[in-house]
């Protein structure tokens, strides 16, 4: 059986010296050594010689002493918004419960004397929540938003991760940044008119 052989050019031709990779290895070692000595110098300046934060060239943050400032679009733990009158803005419509992919929200709603609906129990299972933000997206009343809580969510007890309404509520003023972002940037303005 006759086979036609086709020669394929596989990239640039290397000289013998280049193919031994000795110059490349030495170049790589030079780069890492340079990083090592530069970082050693700045670390010594920052700590031993008391140069402080300004001398730091390594971008690692010393958590928990220093915390990162999260961007405004950051999706942390979902929280319920407490309106101006001290009551929750949530009207227990159930849209967040329907939209949640892992079904971590369960609501039991009721009506107040003046006809306003409100959730008697609002349970969000923090262990199941995937922090996707769909509850915030579908809420018609800006009642649930993603806060910037990402740290210290761990507990030793799974029962503690079942957040009820009281643990989820937060005053509106503390969420102003997120609410402004939602109104101006995140979704179409038509929803908020």
């Amino acid at each position: 059986m006759a086979i036609t052989i086709k020669k394929i050019e596989r990239g640039p031709k290397l000289t013998l010296w280049e193919r031994s990779f000795v110059p490349e290895i030495l170049r790589g070692m030079w780069i890492t050594s340079r990083h090592f000595f530069h970082n050693m110098k700045t670390l010594t300046q920052e700590f031993a010689l008391g140069g402080g934060r300004s001398k730091r060239s390594i971008m690692t943050l010393y958590y928990p002493e220093e915390r990162p400032v999260t961007p405004v679009a950051y999706r942390g733990r979902p929280v319920l918004v407490r309106g101006a009158n001290g009551l929750e803005k949530c009207v227990a419509c159930g849209l967040c419960e329907a939209a949640c992919p892992p079904h971590c929200i369960s609501i039991v709603g009721a009506e107040r004397d003046n006809g306003d609906r409100y959730p008697t129990t609002y349970t969000l299972d923090g262990a199941k929540c995937i922090f996707c933000g769909r509850c915030e997206e579908v809420c018609p009343k800006e009642a649930i938003v993603m806060s910037d809580d990402w740290a210290e969510l761990c507990t030793y007890d799974r029962g503690e991760m079942l957040y009820d309404k009281e643990r989820l509520l937060r005053p509106e003023a503390s969420l102003a940044r997120r609410l402004a972002f939602l109104r101006n940037n995140a979704f179409s303005k038509a929803r908020y008119q």
């Binding site: 050594s33 990083h35 090592f36 970082n39 060239s57 390594i58 971008m59 690692t60």
Partner: peptide, 10 residues
């Protein structure tokens, strides 16, 4: 430590 300092971390 050496690997960390070489890789720009602590």
């Amino acid at each position: 430590k050496q690997s960390a300092v070489m890789q720009d971390r602590i």
